[in-house]
């Protein structure tokens, strides 16, 4: 594998399991949350990660940030393996990698003022700054995310969800990170606020030269912000391609099913659309199907799909897909969206 310096982050053969206790006297079961994860992120791009709940998308975000320790594999940050980094060095490195959470209020300590919350990472990562310097930085970042300076001494419960999310974003930005993992940053917000936050994120991305990993279950949102999109199913990558490719020419049957399930805010299109609804629900990751994990819900599945796990193949230019039958499955002329 060539190591072009342009790759900010590279994930190699990542695997993460959890043990789940099933009862007092039985042996704990192993839940494979992520397996065989390989991808890289270029500087300045936005990578969307989509999948149903339980597909491991949040776990992946946390493994990248070393908030969870992966079982196997490497997380290469500019060529340096974060999983092998001593704790103290990793703590220093955290200035470069930040996270924005789904539930804006839950992610803010209710006992601290806005100013204290935003300044908190600085206290540990930039101890050389004095109180005035910290305060000046906090005010500057608050302005950048659209918070009024007079809010600095208020407490989180005095804010609405959208403003609380701005506080969370400010806290992530204060250490001048290079990469931010956004874990469902807008799904707890009202529609009009959702759009404001999405616009804010894309503005900040340009202003601060950020690279974003955007985790969401909402495909419309992911499509809106991402350059490339990674589709996860039961802890494995099933498809990785640019946003336009994914939405215009999905190769994996799962991606197609996901796309057709997305509600479209357009009544005529919605009526025309032939929803090829996916049957059933995501199987338990404790006991995943053999071979291709998607075969139980796939309408193109053949007997051999149950025997062999499809490899993640590189097709066309840099697209990845994990399906035995991607060549045979026709993508309808009129794309799945009916647009």
């Amino acid at each position: 594998m060539d190591q072009t310096p342009i790759n900010l982050l590279e994930i190699r053969d990542l695997k993460k399991t959890f043990s789940v206790s099933s009862g007092l006297f039985s042996r704990p079961l192993t839940l494979t949350a992520l397996e065989n994860i390989n991808f890289s992120i270029r500087k300045g791009e936005t990578l969307g990660i989509v999948g149903e709940s339980g597909c491991g998308k949040s776990t992946l975000g946390r493994c990248i940030l070393q908030l969870l320790a992966p079982d196997e594999g490497q997380v290469l940050w500019l060529g340096q393996d974060l999983t092998k980094l001593p704790a103290e060095e990793m703590r220093q490195r955290r200035a470069d990698l930040q996270i924005i959470f789904q539930d804006p209020l839950a992610s803010l300590n209710p006992r601290m003022t806005v100013g204290e919350i935003i300044a908190d990472p600085l206290r540990t990562l930039r101890p050389e700054l004095n109180k005035q310097e910290r305060r000046a930085r906090v005010l500057k970042i608050m302005e950048a995310v659209g918070l009024l300076p007079e809010m600095i001494n208020r407490y989180p419960h005095e804010f609405s969800g959208g403003q609380a999310q701005r506080i969370g974003i400010a806290r992530a930005l204060i250490t001048e990170p290079k990469l931010i993992v956004c874990d469902e940053p807008v799904s707890a917000l009202d529609v009009s606020i959702q759009a404001q936050i999405l616009n804010l994120l894309s503005e900040l991305k340009d202003e601060f030269g950020l690279t974003l990993i955007f985790i969401s279950h909402n495909l419309s949102v992911v499509r809106h912000v991402s350059d490339r999109i990674l589709v996860l199913y039961l802890g494995r990558i099933v498809e990785l391609a640019t946003g336009d490719e994914i939405y215009e020419k999905p190769r994996h049957p799962y991606t197609r099913a996901l796309l057709t399930a997305v509600p479209i805010p357009d009544p005529r299109l919605a009526r025309q659309r032939n929803i090829d609804a996916l049957k059933g629900e995501i199987p338990s990751p404790i006991n995943p199907p053999s071979g291709c994990t998607f075969r139980t819900r796939c309408r193109f599945a053949k007997p051999y799909c149950a025997e062999h796990r499809p490899p993640l193949e590189t097709i066309e230019d840099n697209r990845l897909v994990a399906c035995h039958r991607w060549r045979e499955i026709e993508v309808p002329e009129e794309a799945v969206l009916g647009a």
Partner: peptide, 20 residues
């Protein structure tokens, strides 16, 4: 205009300003 549309990728959304 605040609702992202999967089939149309606009550069940016056109949200309502302010808070409810």
């Amino acid at each position: 205009h605040s609702t992202p549309h999967i089939a149309k990728r606009a550069e940016r959304l056109d949200p309502i300003q302010g808070l409810p």
